[in-house]
Simulated assay, not measured.
Amino acid sequence: MYIYLLFVHILAAVIAMAAVICYPLIMSSAKTTSQAKFALALLEKAAILPKLGGTLLLLTGLALGFLEVSLFKELWYVLSIAIFLVILVIFAGLIPAGIKQQRTLLQQTPGDDLPDAYRQSRRRSARLDLIANLAAFIVILLMVFKP
């Protein structure tokens, strides 16, 4: 059972992380209002991947811990879960709120030039993306090297 759960856990990580890594790449390519609108619509559709993958990742990680109870005494395991919860908050709550705000700003913008308010909101989202990606990198390091 453990090996099958581990397989699902790794698959969920790939699903969640692929979307997380792509967020800043997609958004940094938007240079006009119409491109930004398209990029935000794409992100809204892709938002299911980190939510689904992240939830499955958390559940399988906890299930692995319950199968191997000694994991709950390991610092790397507990830290991984704690850091991962931060990542989930960012990608399930903060990033979608930023996307809604940016979309509203773009709908109110005549022309194709990106407004300054949008750029500021996008910078906040980019910082959150960076924090989440660094946190994900740390979680991966913890899981691989188990210090």
Rank of each mutant, 00 (worst) to 15 (best):
K37A: 08
K37E: 07
F38A: 04
A39I: 04
L40Q: 05
L40S: 03
L40G: 03
L40D: 06
L40I: 15
A41V: 05
A41I: 03
A41S: 06
L42D: 01
L42C: 01
L42E: 06
L42F: 05
L42M: 07
L43A: 12
E44G: 11
E44I: 12
K45Q: 11
K45P: 02
K45H: 10
K45R: 10
A46C: 08
A46N: 09
A46Q: 12
I48W: 08
I48Q: 00
I48S: 08
L49Y: 13
P50V: 12
K51H: 01
K51E: 01
L52F: 04
G53S: 04
G53W: 01
G54E: 14
G54T: 12
G54Q: 12
G54R: 06
G54V: 12
T55L: 15
T55G: 15
L56N: 11
L56C: 14
L56E: 08
L57D: 06
L57G: 11
L58Q: 05
L58D: 07
L58E: 08
L58F: 14
L58Y: 04
L58G: 10
L59Q: 10
L59A: 15
L59H: 06
T60E: 02
G61M: 03
G61C: 06
L62M: 13
L62R: 06
A63S: 15
A63K: 12
A63D: 13
L64F: 11
L64G: 14
L64W: 08
F66P: 03
L67M: 15
E68A: 14
V69E: 09
V69Q: 06
S70P: 04
S70N: 09
S70V: 09
S70W: 07
L71G: 00
L71A: 03
F72V: 14
F72E: 14
K73H: 11
K73V: 07
K73E: 15
K73L: 15
K73Q: 14
E74P: 04
E74L: 14
E74C: 11
E74M: 15
L75R: 12
L75F: 09
L75I: 13
L75Y: 08
W76Y: 12
W76A: 08
W76F: 15
Y77C: 11
Y77V: 13
V78M: 04
L79Y: 02
L79V: 08
S80T: 06
I81M: 07
A82Q: 01
I83M: 07
I83G: 07
I83H: 04
I83R: 03
F84I: 00
F84Y: 13
L85Q: 05
V86E: 07
V86P: 05
I87M: 08
I87V: 14
I87A: 07
L88R: 00
L88I: 05
L88G: 03
L88T: 00
L88S: 03
V89Q: 10
V89E: 10
V89M: 14
V89N: 10
I90W: 00
I90P: 00
I90L: 04
I90F: 01
I90V: 03
I90A: 01
F91Q: 00
F91T: 03
G93H: 10
G93A: 15
G93T: 13
